[in-house]
Amino acid sequence: MSGYETLPLKMPKGNTHYLYMKKDDNSAASEDSTIFVCNLPADSTLSHIKALCQSLGGSIVESFEWVNVSRNVRAESLTHGLSGGCGRIHMVDAASCNRVLSQAKKNATCGVKWDAKLTIGGKQRYQLLWKYCFPAPDDLQAEVDYFMEEFAAREEEEKKVEKTGRTVVDADGFTTVVKTQKKKSLAMQEAAKQQAEEMKLAEIKRREKREKKDFYRFQIREYKKEQMTDMLTKFKEDQEKVKQYKESGRFNPY
């Protein structure tokens, strides 16, 4: 398991689960305080992780997130991951991050306890998850209103930028001329694309229409020839098909 510390977790039922951890090498991570964990138990939540890090040298966790699982803001404490999934543990600082990893190395053979009791399972969890889908209408309304305001403001801003962008005068006193082009909406893009395609088709059709097909003798001859070959290929195909049928024993009617 190159690059990973394997940490055995002792589960309450006596079996052992294995965590694979390493320092997160994702460059986006601001500091070296993030641990990348693989093969997490699917029911891991922040509280499980907190308890785990507590047992690994009393390190303090800032936050935890699953990789590839969309966050549910309302039900963070109930969000489970996928089997064998990965997560990122953000520690408060680089020191605690290192501590966790070194502790993990130390415990690589004896393992640490995993507090499975922290899992909220069964009926209660599903009830809560379902309930969380229905916030109080007033709260929802407030959320919507807030978002709409913000969205409107943002749109306004964009428009402004678009407008003012055209009149920015640079250091040399020149005004950059920007082509007055509105941001095209998706619908318009789509429509334009479709129109172009239709035009193409129409053009082909028109050209075909203009051409006289049976004007020259060679055209007729060619047409007939084409028909013949068509028929012949069809005939050969049929033969091939029947041969296949025969091989598959289809003609035995019993």
């Binding site: 039922k13 699917a42 399972g121 069964g122 009926k123």
Partner: peptide, 11 residues
């Protein structure tokens, strides 16, 4: 055992 934990009192 994970399934058991997730299923909890349903199982």
């Amino acid at each position: 055992s994970e399934i058991k934990r997730i299923g909890g009192d349903l199982i």
